[in-house]
Design a protein around this nucleic acid. Structure first.
Lengths: 145, 145
DNA sequence: TGATAATTTGGGTGAATACCAAACATTGAT
DNA sequence: ATCAATGTTTGGTATTCACCCAAATTATCA
């Protein structure tokens, strides 16, 4: 049972996993590279790394999709984004402002912190940019893994 | 009149400026390198870069201190740290937990965001790790520079 | 089945952060 | 006042992240 610190992935990798989870299907390299406006070769390499680390299944020339672990991890990433955005929305940020700001720093926010905030907020069901799920949240309180 | 976005400096440089401001005097390379547990040569190079960018005055072999601009900027850095830590302390974080968590991501939080949060909090005078000053805060609300 | 489009690979770049070894400057003790 | 010890800087090198270009490879469709 691997423990998630939330600090495992670089900002770009976080972006990619969130993107792939939101698509909910196999995604092609070009979809990602054009969305993020980078060269396909850059995306290709990053996807390879994510596959090597077990987050993605990569069938060369075909596309990528999330492994079981990658799916679980990406759900945390989305939850983190939504919880942090919701938090900022309580301080005068519009949805867009909150999402944009959070996107800058979310990769450096620990799961422990997210769980704590989520718990203090009473495990909200909706964020400013979508539904918040708490499957693996552990409700901030201690629980066995 | 240079506009501060808050995203000008890398995490390490943020650490250094905050450290120097807190000391409130000329600081030697070794003080910094030993505090952050890195090689003095690493610190020396980073201090050079900060000097080249106008944040520090560096007298070789003697030490560094903040330029006027550097001092102003460092005050923002401290305010950002304290506002963000105070924010987290409202979600069940102890002072230490809040400081530690914020230290991980503060370099990526914009001044605009800090001002907004500061304003929404009613410009608090005290954070979990020191007094908060609002000299250059512009009180979140619009004001001319 | 061959041209076109998508993808990957190989080779480079720059920023950030770090280390080591060697050169250089400062300081303090004799 | 000089020299050894200490502190600092320079030069060289490494890694991680993120990016680009050009060339090779694979897939697809007409």
């Amino acid at each position: 049972m691997t423990v998630i610190t939330g600090l495992e992935l670089s900002p770009r990798k976080v972006d990619y996993l969130k993107f792939i989870l939101k698509k909910g299907r196999t995604v092609k390299t070009t979809e990602i590279s054009s969305s993020f406006k980078v060269d396909p070769s850059t995306t290709s390499k990053t996807l390879n790394e994510l596959a090597a680390s077990g987050y993605l299944n990569h069938v060369p020339y075909k596309g990528v999709d999330l492994t079981q672990y990658g799916g679980m991890y990406a759900e945390f990433l989305i939850r983190r984004h939504r919880i942090m955005s919701l938090l900022l929305s309580h301080y005068g940020f519009s949805s867009e402002e909150a999402c944009e700001e959070v996107s800058r720093f979310e990769a450096y926010v620990s799961k422990e912190a997210v769980d704590k905030i989520c718990s203090a907020m009473g495990h909200p069901m909706f964020g400013v940019c979508g539904e918040i799920t708490h499957e693996k949240c552990f409700h901030g309180e201690q629980r066995d893994g």
